[in-house]
Design a protein around this nucleic acid. Structure first.
Length: 595
RNA sequence: GCCCCGUUAGCUCAGUCGGAUAGAGCGCUGGAUUCCUAAUCCAGAGGCCAUAGGUUCAAAUCCUGUACGGGGCACCA
């Protein structure tokens, strides 16, 4: 076995920065507090340096102080430098450029991160501090059909952000809001019923505003299996109607109404049957790309089950009313959202007595708040951005903290095949489903490529690249790095009995330090991606880390005579392997031992 | 008309709290394998960070205008 290092000192990077900050503020206090009392409130920033000539860390403090002190920044930097006591970790300080203070760390202080990685193992990168409770709602696609590739992006995004948040110490609930209320459910039920009737007669047409996709066919067949022909109660007049041209909204509503009369309580049955079948479909689609919600929130539950007016939607309207944000006009109930930053006022209950989707959403969001989350995150398609001001206004009106509500907008995704965009009309069932995509590429590739782009950026999903098995495919490249390390470690275990001890100071080459710096950065990266809601950063990080590793691999030999050097290098490889594995795990992707 | 997002190398995109000389991959040119996975690596060329101002010791990054591209502006969901 490659030996483990004892006596872990566990100095992490944040501590190092904090220590420097503390020392700096003490020095400032001593030197300048008499001249300029406000310096106590100054924010001291410490940055990681890119250029190795600039050392490892730097602070801009002298330049920030230049103005209030009316003094040359380089002089200030020099004074601070004189008062900064060096130790075994910080071995040199330099004043450079316009007034930066550069800190140089000792060689073995870089290597210490490896001890921490070994100690924390799978938990390296995980925040030890307990953060608050978060609700993340995502996908929430209408339960009227299967998911398409656009939904896939939101789904994978939400899923990865959830694990990132968990990694960063948050307690996360992942919720799918099911729009199972209102008109569209009736249209779905009607569409399923028509498909069902088509199984008995081939002269029946689908209504124009019905759901046209083939996916309703198996639903209709299953309905036939259960109900035989007992629901086949079509009338000649209805067949005539379905043949007519120019079917508008009113036509559709009337048709639904006719059907309710014909089928009576059976209509309700078909509705629930269809909903449950479609949800089944959606869940299967999500499962296929590794997305797991732990809560499913039904819109109709907001309206209660007994048909009484004592429900959450009415409750929320009452709350708005009591706070003076409600008025009636033209027979409708309006929310005065324009007084709280929205473009115009919004209808909650229409003149015909039906509630709007927005009414549900007010109640739903109030419910989320009342469940006691500290952050409420919504992942929405970018086409919904105009919707945010009214939801925010509603929360504001009800005196909820609108800063708790975070909405992340996901831009559209296009599929690219052989260098050409694949057309993606969403009309009349002619769209590319998530299921079709998942049959083409692996779950892992889909997850990686969906995330490998900033959310507010349009995504071109290159199918050929996702399938390619070479370095051009970043996922392959990352997984290969992991497998390669495993291979070296296997070989080492097989060929050698005795290993020297790990000597961290031996890991001082340019490439080694570059790798160690990246490893040290990993926990901060996780924290930042989680806070900012930017999982794509993890993809880029893993690509970078793998790149430096491959380069290192080609420049050094590992199974060598010098046992101590060999063991130290293998120890470094173990660290890289662990971090790649941890990062991939957050993405929901396997780190293969062999490829 | 109003609102949101974007514009960085030929192409696809990163760029942290504003920080020092702007970063990858692809593509292009030229190299590396008797050796731990060449499924890889090394070197080179390639930039007015859309544009005009402003703030700052310091701007790709913050603010304002303009151009171009995408999206949104229902008593729909």
């Amino acid at each position: 076995m490659i030996p483990e290092v004892e006596n872990i000192k566990g100095v992490n990077d944040l501590l190092m920065k904090d220590n420097i900050k503390k020392t700096l503020s003490e020095i400032l206090e001593d030197l300048y507090s008499q001249v300029e009392p406000e310096i106590k409130n100054l924010k001291i920033s410490i940055q990681d340096n890119k250029e190795k000539e600039h050392g490892d860390l730097a602070t801009n403090i002298a330049m920030v102080l230049a103005k209030p002190l009316k003094k040359n920044p380089k002089e200030i930097a020099e004074e601070i430098k004189q008062n900064f006591v060096l130790d075994e970790k910080i071995i040199k300080i330099e004043v450079a450029g316009p007034g930066f203070l550069n800190f140089f760390l000792s060689k073995d202080s870089h290597g210490e991160i490896l001890e921490q990685i070994q100690k924390e193992n799978k938990d390296f990168g995980k925040s030890s501090s307990k953060q608050s409770k978060v609700l993340i709602e995502y996908v929430s696609s209408n339960p009227t059909g299967p998911l398409h590739v656009g939904h896939g992006r939101g789904a994978v995004f939400g899923s990865v952000l959830s694990s990132l948040l968990e990694e960063a110490g948050f307690e996360v609930d992942q919720e799918y809001y099911v729009n199972d209320f209102g008109r569209q459910m009736n249209i779905l039920a009607t569409s399923v019923w028509i498909r069902y009737c088509q199984l008995f007669s081939n002269e029946i047409k689908m209504m124009q505003q019905g759901y046209q996709g083939d996916y309703l066919l198996p639903v209709a067949k299953k309905l036939k299996d259960e109900k035989s022909d007992s629901l086949f109660k079509i009338e000649e007049s209805l067949i005539q109607k379905l043949n007519s041209e120019d079917q508008d909204d009113e036509f559709t509503d009337q048709l639904v109404e006719n059907l309710r009369v014909i089928l009576k309580e059976e209509f309700q049955y078909i509705r629930e049957f269809a909903l449950s079948e479609i949800l089944h479909l959606i869940k299967a689609d999500l499962e296929q790309c590794g997305v797991h919600h732990n809560a499913w929130f039904s819109e109709s539950s907001l309206y209660g089950n007994d048909g009484s007016t004592d429900n959450k939607v009415n409750g929320s309207i009452e709350e708005l009313k009591s706070r003076g944000f409600i008025y009636e006009e033209g027979g409708a109930i309006w929310f005065k959202s324009s007084s709280l930053g929205d473009d115009k006022d919004r209808v909650l209950k229409r003149g015909n007595g039906e509630y709007t989707y927005f009414a549900s959403d007010v109640a739903y969001h109030l419910d989320k708040y009342d469940r006691g989350y500290d952050r409420v995150i919504n992942v929405w398609g970018s086409d919904h951005h105009g919707y945010l001001p009214r939801v925010r206004a509603a929360m504001d009106a009800c005196d909820r903290d609108i800063n708790k509500l975070e909405v992340i907008f996901i831009q559209f995704a296009n599929l690219v095949k052989a260098g050409k965009k694949v057309s993606m009309s969403t009309r009349s069932g002619d769209f590319i489903t998530l299921n079709e995509l998942m049959n083409e590429v692996t779950t892992e590739a889909a997850r990686f490529f969906y995330i490998n782009r900033k959310a507010d950026q349009h995504l071109e999903f290159d199918l050929d690249l996702a399938k390619e098995q070479s370095k051009d495919n970043p996922l392959y490249y990352i997984q290969y790095a992991h497998a390669r390390i495993c291979s070296v470690l296997r070989k080492a275990e097989n060929e050698f009995e005795d290993f020297g001890s790990v000597e961290l100071a031996l890991l001082g080459s340019e490439k080694e330090i570059e790798i160690l710096k990246l490893l040290r950065h990993y926990p901060q990266l996780i924290e930042r991606s989680a806070k900012a809601g930017e999982p794509h950063l993890l993809c880029y990080f893993l690509r970078d880390l793998s790149g430096v590793f491959h380069s290192y691999y080609n420049s050094e030999k590992f199974l060598i005579e010098d046992k101590e050097l060999m063991t130290s290098r293998l120890f470094l490889l173990k660290g890289v392997k662990q971090v790649i594995a941890n990062g991939l795990r957050v993405l929901g992707i396997k780190a293969p031992e062999k490829m």
